[in-house]
Design a protein around this nucleic acid. Structure first.
Length: 346
DNA sequence: AATGGTGCCAACCGCCTAATC
DNA sequence: AGATTAGGCGGTTGGCACCAT
């Protein structure tokens, strides 16, 4: 019944990989391709667990991996995505071609977290981490962040912040297969004019954000395949969705789709505190400022909920119909595409 | 030069979900 | 349908390098 065991851990090598092991693994995968990790060690002649082989390949040996020198743009992107997704390192890594989830996780724990904790962060680019985070969550700085200066003290380790993160306004996602296709609102071409190029800058020539094929497992889908898929359908892969004040809330569906919103994420929407989820904007105080190089916005600080209330009013019956999980879908209309709402109602 | 503290990162651990039988 | 496992993920840790004293 079921599958046979992955591997016996007895007699297997552990710890750091040798150059010879790396070569064997690389040669084998170059010849036979990825996957079948369970049988790979035996076939390749490695005394390693398949799981270990997979990890070594994905995090270190893949030819397309960029190592070290995380740029300021990448750092900003990591911060923004982490702000939205929390410790979903694989999702964050999926938006940073050539970067691994492990690398981003390590970078966060050793660099960004410390900078934020210190409060005096000045990243390699012009925008501070703190500014980026405070721009959307002015109270986020109250959360305890990992302080690496204490080494591996459990008292200061990120794991102790799970509760804080889980209780924060991070959108929680789950790894699951996307079974619905949501066509972005292409009828609003002006909304598609602002995408970030791979340097985090606005690219007015960018094509629409991608909508994945329905059978694609967006969470587990390999990011390189994802990029290939994106390119295959002639779409540029935006590294980060951009909400502009010009677009107002109307492009929120693309915003969510670009973050690979699936059913599970939608199911988490009721837990999302829209009331306090403010737009990134460059108006207001210092802490509410985003570098204009990346966000050329007007002074926007209206919350999604406020936007929703400004949107089309609904009758009581409709309002009742639209209540789901205690959330007014009418209010959510400001956040998601109408077609998405229809689908949720179904 | 020796020692201790700290930072960094590769690798392991344990859990979860989908796949398989 | 239920049991079992592979693959994937985030959390955690061991060990090396670097630096200060």
């Amino acid at each position: 019944m079921g599958r046979s065991p992955c591997c016996s851990k007895e007699g297997l090598n552990r710890g750091a990989w040798t150059a010879m092991e790396d070569k064997i693994l690389t040669d084998y995968i170059t010849t036979h391709g990825e996957g079948k990790w369970r049988n790979l060690p035996k076939r390749a002649g490695l005394k390693r667990c398949g799981k270990s082989c997979r990890l070594r390949w994905l995090n270190y040996l893949r030819p397309d991996i960029k190592r070290g020198n995380i740029t300021g743009d990448e750092e900003e992107l990591i911060i923004r995505l982490h702000n939205l997704l929390g410790n979903r390192w694989s999702l964050i890594a999926g938006r940073l071609p050539g970067r691994t989830d492990n690398e981003i996780k390590n970078y966060w724990n050793t660099n960004i977290g410390k900078k934020i904790q210190g409060g005096g962060h000045q990243p390699s680019s012009t925008t501070s981490c703190k500014q980026i985070i405070l721009s959307s969550h002015n109270d986020r700085e109250k959360l305890p962040y990992y302080n690496p200066t204490k080494g591996h003290s459990k008292a200061s380790h990120p794991s102790t912040h799970k509760a804080a993160i889980n209780s924060s306004r991070v959108v929680r996602t789950k790894a699951s297969r996307c079974t619905k296709v949501v066509i972005p609102a292409a009828q609003h071409p002006q909304k598609l004019n602002h995408q970030l190029d791979h340097h985090g800058h606005v690219d007015d020539t960018t094509k629409p954000a991608l909508v994945h094929e329905p059978s694609v497992d967006v969470d587990n889908h390999d990011r390189d395949d994802q990029v290939k898929d994106d390119q295959a359908v002639g779409l540029q892969v935006p590294l980060l969705p951009l909400i502009s004040s010009d677009d107002n809330y109307n492009n929120s569906s693309e915003f969510m789709m670009d973050l690979e919103l699936d059913e599970s994420l939608l199911s988490d929407l009721p837990n999302f505190d829209f009331l306090h989820f403010t737009y990134f904007g460059n108006g207001g105080g210092d802490d509410d400022h985003i570098d204009g190089n990346n966000f050329d916005h007007n002074n926007v600080s209206t919350t999604y909920n406020e936007k929703a209330q400004l949107s089309s009013p609904k009758s009581d019956d409709l309002a009742a119909e639209d209540m789901m999980y205690g959330v007014d879908l009418g209010s959510m209309a400001a956040l998601v595409d109408p077609e998405v709402l229809d689908w949720i109602r179904d």
